[in-house]
């Protein structure tokens, strides 16, 4: 007999709000989020990209000036 792709339940159970509230834990979810969001320095940088924009701009500016100075000296 062909295996069904779905398990069809005609008498599904329903949960009360209290039963669901037992599983509600933002701090646990936040801990999982932090694990993924900050797993490497690069990910940390990405998370705060909007704060780092100015630093990145300064770094590019310094690199360009350094390149120009080096070219002038050479």
């Amino acid at each position: 007999m062909k295996k069904s792709k779905y398990d069809i339940k005609t008498k599904p159970l329903s949960l009360s709000d209290k039963d669901i509230e037992k599983h509600m834990d933002f701090d646990k979810t936040y801990a999982h989020y932090s694990h993924w969001a900050y797993r490497k320095p690069w990910h940390r940088f990405q998370r705060h990209a909007h704060k780092n924009n100015r630093i990145v701009l300064y770094l590019i500016l310094i690199a360009v000036i350094a390149a120009l100075v080096l070219m002038e000296m050479g």
């Binding site: 295996k3 069904s4 792709k5 779905y6 398990d7 069809i8 339940k9 005609t10 008498k11 599904p12």
Partner: peptide
């Protein structure tokens, strides 16, 4: 690789 569940109660079905 399990079969996904579809819940249908008797009234709506």
């Amino acid at each position: 690789k399990k079969a996904r569940s579809v819940s249908i109660d008797e009234h709506t079905v």
